[in-house]
Amino acid sequence: MSRVILETHDLTVRFGGHVAVDAVTCAFRAGELTAIVGPNGAGKTTYFNLISGQIPVSAGRVVLNGRDITRDSVAHRTRAGIGRAFQLTNLFPNLSVLENVRLVIQSKAGLGYRLLSMASGHSEVTDKAVAILDRVRLYEKRAQLVSELSHGDQRKLEVALLIALDPAVYMFDEPTAGMSVDEAPVVLDLIADLKAQKDRTILLVEHKMDVIARLADRIIVLHNGALAADGDPAEVIASDVVQEAYMGKELTDV
């Protein structure tokens, strides 16, 4: 088995009396793509928010490469290797497509506090950004403002930002939501490429069973915030309990 990269220990968050994520203990290994499934409101996105730091935890710990990052800011976690793409597209709408990607590369290169050099003078940043746009097939649209892009292209850019960040842990939250049948495969192929790199840990919240069947090495099921099942995709999907009680409608749709 490969090395454990990310662990959550008894990770819990309460909103008032409601326990949204309930003592989830789980470890994620390098080179492994884990699909996180469960009915709406099961706490999948909240679990993501706890790991990447958007929401403070009520109890429990998040450990990255053996280091406790539970109290770290989002920016610190990002630089430590936790990268996140969002379910609702979350970009810089009035900047160009290229500038969106450049910002990520610039962050990785640690250039944020350069006050007196010209941003456009850092050609290595621009070159890397262009290469990534080429990879996600947005190169032609690099000069457009993000607000002018179609929904599908915005989803692609969302994924492009994460690829540009190239973190140790990739977290995708329904990356193909709302994308057309033609566009979704582009994003899925990108995720498959990442998986092929072997050393990346990928977490994927997804509803579509065909996507999960194609990409996942492992499935964990959340229900009412708690870990309800964890294991090999075939086993988890086949288990009757999971089928009926935990996946509900989404599974029978496919």
Binding site: Q54, A75, F92, P93, L103, S107, G112, R114, A119, H122
Partner: peptide, 29 residues
């Protein structure tokens, strides 16, 4: 004018546009 066109200036614009995401790509807002 130089500062607003520097890498720092770009980060400022990113924060103005979407501070939540700026943080999530590694900039301590």
């Amino acid at each position: 004018l130089r500062v607003v066109n520097s890498p720092f200036g770009r980060v400022l614009q990113a924060i103005r546009e979407n501070d939540f995401r700026a943080e999530a790509i590694g900039y301590r807002v």
